[in-house]
Structures are given as C-alpha cells and as structure tokens.
Design a protein around this nucleic acid. Structure first.
Length: 583
RNA sequence: GCGCCUGUAGCUCAGCUGGAUAGAGCAUCGGUCUUCUAAACCGAGGGUCGCAGGUUCGACUCCUGCCAGGCGCGCCA
C-alpha cells in the first residue's frame, strides 16, 4: 500500500515537471510516505509539498493541491486531503484495508517476510564469551539480542550465518587450565595457596574432580615444586599478575606439553559444552563455532601480522611489535606482539576479521558488550590497513543488564564468582520471559531486568499479555468447534466497528514494521508492536462477541481473530518466544 | 583529562531516521465478570522532552556550549 502511494506521488511529480511547475523531476528518494499517527489524518501522509515548496517557489499548501490534482486515479485510495502546513493525507478504502485479512490467512507463516535483502549474505557474530566459565546474565542479553537480529535479517531476505567466536587461546585460558589443575591437586591431597587471580568458581572444582576421577594421581606434582621461586601473590604483597603468569609457565614445564594440553582441553571442552547447552536451551543456535586457537595454529595470526608489516604499518618499540593504528583513526597505536613473544588478543582479532572478509560476506555484524566500545576503532583500523575497507563491518554494542529482585539491584562480579548465570535466570523466570525481557529495550540502553515482574503470572507481565492474546484466540476457536461449528467464509464488509478497523490497520503495518526493525537492528520495535497488537485485540475481545449467530458476521470476526493470531505467532516466533494454545 | 553512550510522566521506557495536539506499561484513584479465559477491559490525574543558544516552513529528533550519570582509555581478554 505504501509503495503504491509512493508510485502515485512519483507519477504526480513527473507530471508537475512536465507542466513546468518544477524545473526537474525530483529524485524518488526525496518522496516520503509515512503512516499517520492520528486517524483523522487518514492512513498515510506525505510531506512532499513541504519539501518541494522552496524548489517550486510556491507555498506548500498551494503546491500540495497541484500535486493532488496530478495524482493518478486509484481505486484503493478513497480520498486525499491537504492538511496542516501542507501535508497530503491519503485515506485507504475500507475494502483495500480489510483485504489484509485474506492476505495474512493465505500467507500464514510467510506473512510479513520480504526479499529486501535479496539473498545478500550477512554474518552475525554474537555471544562469543570466553570459555572460562558459565554464561551469565550479561551474556544472555547479547545472546537474545543477536539471535533476534539474525532472525529479523533472515525474515527480510538476507542469508544469515550465526557465528560464535571461541576465545580458546590466550592468557585467560591458561589461567583456567592452571586453576583446574590446582583444584585437582587439592583434591589429590596437596595443600596449596590458591592464586588470587585464578578462577574461583565452584565449576573449577568440578572439572578438577573429573581430571582426578579419570587420571588419578597421574597429574600430581608436589606443591613445593610448583611454588618455589615463583613471584609472590598479592596477599604476600606481590604482583598477582606476575604470580599467575609464573604459575602457568611452571605448570607447562612440570606437566609437559601433552599433559598440560589435556588439562587445558578438558577445561575448554567441559565449559564449551556447558555453554552450548545453555544457549540451546535458551533457544540460541549457531551455524559456526569459530576457534581462535585454530586461527593461531594454522598461522593466520602470523600471516596477518606479516601482512601489516609488509604494508609498512608495523614498528618495534621496547621489545614489542606495534600496529600503527593511529594512521587509521585510532587514538593510539596498539601492540600485536608482546615483548615476551606472545601475540595479543588484538592480533587474533585482526586475523579473525580478515578471515571474515575473506569468507565473502556482504555484511559482517559483531555484537559486543558496550564495555568494548573503545575496541571498535582499532579493529576498523586493522580492516582499513589490510582490507582497504571497513564498511562491511557493523559493530552493535549491547549495554549491560542489571537485575532487580525485590526492588534491589542484584550485585554481581565475575571474577569472584558472584554472578547470576544464564541458567539460573532461565530456571527462575522461564525462557520466554527471559528472551522477551532482554529484547524489550533498545540495545544501547541499560536494561533494568525486573526478576519479580518477569516471573509474575499477572497482567503486569508483557510476555504473558501477548501470549494470552494468542491463547485466547485459540480458546475461542475451541469454543467454536465445541458448538459443532466450523470457520467458514465470512463477509468482511461487516467489519466496520472502530476496534476492527484499528486492528486491520495494525495488522497491515506488520510487514513495514518488520522491515524497519530489521534494518535498524532493533528487536524492541517488534516487542512493542506485539504488545500494541495484543492490547488492541484484548480491547476488541471485551467489546464484541465473536461467536454470534449470524454466520457471515461470526466468520468475518473469526477471520480477523485468526489473522491477529497469525501475526502474533509470527512475531513471537522471530523473538523465539513460544505462542501457547492454552494458558 | 580525552573518547563513546545516555538524560522524555513518581518508576521503567517508546517516539516510525526532521513532521501535525509528545505516547505506553507500572504505580495512584474510580469503574467492569449470570455472556467466547478478569493473565482482560474502560475512565481520571500526572510533562519546562537535563539547561542555554543555533540551524528552518517545522526540533524530543540535527549542530554548539554547559550540567548530570554510565562505560572505555593495558605489552588483559
């Protein structure tokens, strides 16, 4: 409908130019048509006359009437009107508006989808939490957001690949390995000072126990051999970073490459399996799990550094290798290889993003926690240096979620192990509520997650509110069948009460809404829309009886209900929230 | 100190990429179940859109400067 009106306006402007009222035909992109906010302004409005007034050297209202006079006839437009400073309002004919019901019932699950993306490929990388511990509620938001963005893009015709970047290399993973080993040693009977910087969570004990169960004392080393000659830890007025690094090095020496790798892999695989499980039961699936370690072991990281070097963007300073990222807009240069010879996380990320580009995606989306925002310029710098272009990269930052219970903020800290895991959240409030609450707000806004509200089975809870609308319609249909009746052909022209007209308009808006939400990467638009649709339905439900004796009217109303149900089901589906038949 | 984000009703947030009289939920107050699920509906009050300038036909939206909050400024990831 919107496009139809757009075409009418294009024709009108062409005629306008032909008649000499405009010097040239304005670019079609200049023409805007939008939904009106107020029904008295019709269904659609265009500000075209306001925009062209200056070019045409006429006042906007006068120009508007010239435009209207040149609009081609269209049976789906009932009338037009010039209003306010010079808006052209379009009133869609009721028959044209109602036809959306048949469209929805015919297209079912496809309704709202489009081919805007025309099969172009987009990769969405999200979550990508370090496999050093269970996912917590902060990761949950990125997971829910990323998953829905991917769904939305798919719905408007993109070919989407969902990817999880596994940080299975680097210092944090070594700290994990050592943490597990030390817990194992404690279980084996050694008594030792557990480093401040090691992972404290209970899950470390569990993995240590597995190691002990499967290998007995094969990994046991006397505690004195480990800690003798190691820099002091923090409680002894030492440096906790130097301490843990030395313990890692000692562990590698004492265990040897093979045994060390076994401990390392046990930790990695256990935690990764746990993460996959958590995500799967949260309704989040990935096409690719991309390993950082593999990137390093296949030499991609080295090659990336060499490429930077060959291009002349690398220099050496105080033993380290630096990438001259300031040349591409970063605020300072960045180290890619430390003075101890290890490549940095950033070096891996350069190789990783280069790899993404080489895989040929048309667009690459990174969903990151907002605390990483300072990291964006350096990744862009690397792409500009090595790929010559960073325009395919789109970084979306997700702010943290604060949990509230009983009106109090729940305090969390990862390192100390005092965090609420994603699994606990799901067990607490349920998957549907968790998924919905996570995407209810803009991604770049802090989210106050009210646990009590998410759990409450009350009218305050927006998830249930929407689901209830869906279940209510299912219930009405059950009632119909209990009366021995079937849904038949209705007379849609009987749908002329204001509630029905309002619902029809809202339903017709769904495809536009979806396109908008997807393009803007804003799932909250869909969440808000569904709430509005549910609200209008509940109002309608209270105002009108559906199961009336007049079959033509009954079937018309039930068709409308079915259309509403279909759209709710489609929308909730994109949010990965269930649409129950009973509640 | 520098950079990024945010500031809209008592609270939590929308505001369709610059449009017409700034909206919703919660909370508060008052109503609605002998009728398809009251997990619902109807009504009322509640606003200097942080402050001050600027841009134009038109600003919550764009620009500048302040004020307040969050985050980031490692040879950590």
């Amino acid at each position: 409908m919107k496009n139809e009106i757009l075409n009418l306006l294009v024709k009108a402007t062409e005629q306008l130019a032909a008649d000499g009222l405009l010097e040239s035909v304005p670019a079609p992109e200049l023409i805007e048509v939008s939904r009106t906010r107020d029904a008295s302004h019709g269904d659609f409005a265009s500000n075209l006359a306001l925009k062209l007034a200056k070019l045409a050297k006429r006042n906007p209202r006068e120009l508007a009437s010239e435009i209207v006079a040149r609009l081609p006839k269209n049976s789906r437009i009932e009338k037009t009107q010039i209003a306010g400073p010079g808006f052209i309002n379009f009133f869609v004919s009721k028959a044209a508006a109602r036809s959306i019901i048949s469209t929805i019932l015919a297209q079912t699950a496809q309704f709202g989808r489009s081919d805007y993306g025309a099969g172009r490929s987009v990769q969405v990388e999200f979550v990508s939490a370090n496999p050093t511990g269970p996912l917590h509620v902060g990761h949950g938001r990125g997971a829910a957001y990323g998953a829905v963005v991917a769904n939305l893009l798919e719905a408007i015709g993109y070919r989407v690949e969902r990817e999880y970047y596994v940080n299975d290399a680097g210092r944090q993973m070594h700290i994990l390995a050592v943490s597990i080993w030390l817990r194992y040693l404690e279980l084996a009977g050694e008594s030792l000072p557990f480093p401040t910087n090691a992972y404290q969570g209970d899950y470390i004990w569990d993995i240590g126990a597995t190691l002990h169960r499967e290998h007995g004392d094969a990994y046991r080393v006397p505690m004195t051999e480990i800690f003798t000659g190691i820099p002091l830890d923090e409680p002894q007025q030492g440096d906790k970073e130097a301490h843990i690094d030395a313990v890692i090095e000692r562990a590698q020496t004492l265990l040897g490459a093979e045994r060390y790798r076994t401990v390392f892999d046990l930790g990695l695989h256990t935690i990764l399996a746990n993460i996959r499980q958590d995500l799967a039961s949260f309704g989040v699936e990935f096409d690719v799990w991309f390993s950082e370690r593999e990137l390093a072991e296949t030499g991609a990281v080295e090659r990336a550094i060499e490429a930077l070097q060959a291009a002349g963007y690398v220099y050496e300073k105080s033993g380290a290798l630096w990438f001259r990222s300031t040349e591409f807009g970063d605020e300072k240069d960045r180290v890619v290889r430390r003075d101890n010879g290890q490549t940095t996380y950033f070096a891996s990320d350069i190789a990783y993003h280069l790899n993404k580009m080489e895989r040929g995606f048309d667009t690459v989306i990174d969903v990151w926690g907002a605390d990483h925002h300072g990291y964006v310029p350096r990744v862009r710098a690397a792409l500009k240096a090595l790929y010559g272009d960073d325009s395919k990269l789109n970084v979306l930052l997700v702010q943290f979620a604060n949990l509230f219970r009983g009106g109090q903020k729940v305090q969390m800290s990862t390192r100390s192990g005092e965090f609420v895991t994603l699994r606990e959240l799901r067990d607490d409030v349920g998957r549907d509520a968790a998924r919905f609450f996570y995407v209810m707000r803009r991604h770049d806004q802090h989210l106050d997650f009210d646990l009590d509200l998410a759990k409450s089975q009350s009218n305050d809870n927006p998830v249930y509110y929407i689901q209830y609308a869906h279940a209510r319609i299912a219930s009405v249909m059950r009632q119909l069948h209990e009366k021995g009746l079937q849904l038949g052909e209705g007379n849609l022209t009987l749908l002329n009460d204001p509630h029905e007209e309002e619902l029809v308009t809202t339903l017709a808006r769904y495809p536009e809404l979806l396109l908008n939400a997807a393009q803007a990467e804003e799932p909250h638009q869909l969440a808000n829309y569904l709430r509005e649709l549910a609200n209008q339905f509940h109002t309608y439900y209270n105002a009108q009886q559906f199961l009336v004796d007049d079959a033509a009217l009954r079937n018309a109303r039930l068709s409308l209900c079915q259309a509403v149900q279909q759209v709710i089901r489609n929308g909730l589906g994109l949010l990965d929230v269930s649409a129950p038949e009973h509640m």
